[in-house]
Design a protein around this nucleic acid. Structure first.
Length: 560
RNA sequence: UGGCCUAUGGUGUAAUUGGCAACACAGCUGGUUUUGGUCCAGUCGUUCUAGGUUCGAGUCCUAGUAGGCCAACCA
């Protein structure tokens, strides 16, 4: 897909319009501004791809800026995790910034506003201020402290900074308009007193700036041209612009805030609060649990950075509410993994097959391709012996013509091996099939070129040699929630929709070559799906996570 | 009883800015295949409603309807 032929999203249209109106391409600059109070999720990935994608498209720098104005919730641990995730996605930021780097400049500007009579210290309780704020349909009323003298404001603000007042005792507010239909303009708080150590500035400050006061000014300091955020900040734009008006100097870039709709993924939640709740309640095993929609969870699950980038590109960006079906994400995973993942054989639900005419004690090494989609991936050898495992679902005593697998009296090919025929089977006392006896055609070996090997049999099965197979733990995942939109149901808590079967742990048998697999390696278990090696893997225990299953038209047929 | 935003197939996003509504996913039919995968071909199906402007409206205007957001010393 060439860049030129790709249609533009509405943000790109805005930028193109600015460029046409004389904006210099050199002045374009973007930023990704996470608050370090949680782990990044698939929604952030979309925002990251948007901002960094713009940087690539226009050859413009993109800053990674941590919005760290609230020491009560923010931690270094999150900073590190966020940096790792952005890098893993494949993006490079121009400079690493912190809103806290600008605390002094912000303070100086605040003093300037006080001197201009545009900000004042309010000494009421938050409850009283909330009452005065009015409601969306009723105007607010002025604070009794609204007309304090400049000198008194200056003195109090200095004292707040010097730590002479308790947390919560005073705030600095912008003096705008208590009757504005936009509640954010009703004298918004710029600073609060907070005696709390900050992850970067430690105890240097005991007043901390609020988001609205900080964000636009930070954009301005960094000379960000287009500041993109989610829709819920649309109402903040008026305030963003008001604060900018107070400090912008001629000749400098005036940042422009534009809003886009956050991306919602079906069958999951993407809100830091709810994700935190999942972690803290123990429903999942941490932020990187493979069922989590966090970037670290997707990584552990086996998603590739490219598949996530493709997903973000495919869903695009707009301003309307949306609920993107998780099947699209899964498609993107398969699309990438199909081209890159080496094929191996693994049996998840083993049924023993004895090839009765195969010499006892003999082992034969069969050559098989590593990836039919990529010839350069080469070949490897896999062992065959008299006893093998196949999937339970691949054998039936009786079946109709649509069943392309093994049935009594029927033939199938063992992938890269021989054609076998089921002769009989053994059952336990409860009637469960526990073994199948087959014969094989020694002349039908794959690739041997004999007429027998060229015979067409409808089914091909994956298998492993019992004697050589490795045992492995396999973790199978299903969607975390059974409802497509668990957190938008009236009067229902999203936790009510948890899928109790989102994790299933089984013992499987895999081909011996997997002994050397390393953590993070991704494979296609042929006819099953894509799997990757989990970090829980140790020298004596191999653990795989199922990333996503192969498309399964048979299962679809069956369920009809 | 206010303000702001949004409305295009089942889902997501486009439409050269007023000129034949398209792309991807999902679904369905076939074909190829030593993975019931991949790949290939085909198919189904769309502009919230009512007016208006115009030769011509998904696009502009008016009204309505539906959905989302806004009253944290959070971001």
């Amino acid at each position: 897909m060439s860049e030129a032929s790709k249609s533009l999203n509405f943000i790109e249209h805005i930028i193109e319009e600015d460029l046409k109106n004389g904006y210099s391409k050199q002045d374009l600059r973007f930023r990704f501004p996470p608050e370090p109070n949680g782990y990044l999720h698939i929604g952030h990935a979309s925002s990251i791809c948007l901002n960094f994608g713009l940087g690539i498209r226009y050859n413009a720098p993109v800053n990674l800026r941590f919005d760290d104005t609230n020491p009560a919730k923010e931690e270094q641990e999150y900073v590190d995790a966020i940096k790792r995730d952005v890098e893993w996605l494949g993006f490079k930021w121009d400079t690493e910034r912190y809103a806290s780097d600008y605390f002094q400049q912000l303070y100086d500007w605040a003093v300037m506003l006080i001197k201009e009579g545009k900000a004042y210290v309010d000494s009421q309780s938050s409850e009283d201020m909330a009452v005065q704020k009015g409601t969306p349909t009723q105007a607010g009323s002025d604070s009794p402290y609204r007309n304090r003298s400049v000198d008194e404001n200056l003195r109090l603000f200095q004292e707040m900074k010097d730590g002479k007042h308790e947390s919560g005792s005073h705030v600095l507010r912008a003096k705008i308009d208590m009757a504005s239909p936009n509640m954010l303009m009703r004298d918004p708080i710029m600073y609060r007193v907070l005696h709390k150590a900050h992850h970067r500035t430690n105890t240097d400050w005991c007043i901390y700036p609020m988001y609205d006061w900080t964000h636009g000014e930070s954009d301005y300091i960094e000379q960000v041209s287009h500041s993109l955020c989610t829709l819920e900040f649309a109402m903040h734009r008026e305030l963003y612009d008001w604060f900018l008006d107070q400090v912008v100097e001629p000749g400098k870039i005036r940042p422009k805030q534009r809003e886009f709709a956050r991306r919602n993924l079906s069958h999951t939640v993407v809100s830091k609060r709810k994700l935190l709740q999942l972690v803290e309640s123990g429903v999942v095993n941490g932020w990187d649990d493979p069922r989590m929609p966090t970037i670290s969870g997707l990584r552990r699950r086996g998603y590739t950075p490219r598949s996530i980038r493709n997903f973000a590109d495919t869903i695009g960006i707009a301003k309307r509410e949306n609920l993107i079906d998780v099947s699209l994400l899964e498609f993107c995973a398969r699309e990438d993994l199909n081209k890159t993942a080496p094929r191996v054989m693994g049996v998840l639900n083993p049924l023993k097959v004895v090839i009765t005419n195969y010499p006892e004690g003999e082992t034969e090494w069969l050559e098989t391709e590593n990836n039919p989609e990529d010839e350069s991936a080469g070949t490897r050898e896999i062992p065959l012996s008299r006893e093998i495992f196949i999937e339970k679902e691949d054998f039936r005593e009786e079946a109709n013509r649509k069943f392309f697998r093994l049935k009594l009296g029927g033939e199938v090919r063992l992938k890269s091996g021989y054609i076998i025929k089921a002769e009989s089977c053994t059952k336990d006392t409860e009637g469960n099939i526990i073994e199948v006896q087959c014969t094989y055609d020694p002349k039908s070996k794959s690739g041997s070129g004999t007429p027998e090997s060229l015979r067409k049999v409808k089914g091909t099965l994956h298998w492993v040699s019992c004697q050589h197979a490795l045992r492995a733990e396999v973790r199978l995942y299903d969607r975390l929630f059974s409802h497509e939109s668990p957190d938008t149901q009236k009067d229902k808590d999203f936790m009510e929709f948890l899928n109790p079967e989102s994790l299933q742990i089984i013992e499987a048998y895999v081909e011996p070559g997997l002994k050397n697999a390393k953590v993070g390696d991704r494979f296609q278990f042929q006819r099953i799906g894509y799997f990757c090696v989990d970090p829980d893997t140790s020298d004596d225990k191999l653990v795989f996570n199922k990333t996503v299953g192969l498309r399964d038209t048979w299962a679809k047929l069956e369920s009809k």
